[in-house]
């Protein structure tokens, strides 16, 4: 590709991305009443989407070969336990990441 073709390709990436980000706000502007079904989804998607993101973040975990996702599972359990007792977001994240790094890098 020459520079112009590169630039057009990048522009396409930008257009596609910007479109997905702005679409809901353009389709449902503030000055117009929002359709009931969108309001309905808007109250539920914050949770369903967070569930989606958790799985999305784990999508490259290989369950069929060693270590079968055990490192991820253990780290998530550590996060859940620490979060249950301490309820401190940054502490829970740090604990989970440290356990994951130890497991995945074989530091023990």
């Amino acid at each position: 590709m020459n520079n112009n073709q590169m630039l057009i390709t990048v522009a396409m990436l930008v257009v596609g991305t910007v479109f997905t980000r702005f679409l809901p706000f353009i389709a449902f502007p503030e000055h117009k009443p929002i359709p009931k079904v969108i309001t309905y989804l808007g109250l539920r998607l914050p949770y369903a989407t967070m569930g989606m993101l958790v799985v999305y973040a784990l999508k490259d975990t290989k369950l069929t070969e060693s270590p079968y996702g055990i490192f991820e599972l253990l780290s998530l359990v550590v996060i859940a336990v620490v979060h249950y007792f301490k309820n401190n977001t940054l502490l829970s994240i740090s604990a989970g990441v440290i356990v994951y790094l130890i497991l995945v890098n074989g530091w023990i």
Binding site: R21, P24, I38, G42, L45, M52, Y56
Partner: peptide, 10 residues
């Protein structure tokens, strides 16, 4: 997936 983000944040 961004479309869901927008709807969730309207």
């Amino acid at each position: 997936r961004h479309i869901f983000y927008g709807i969730a944040l309207l």
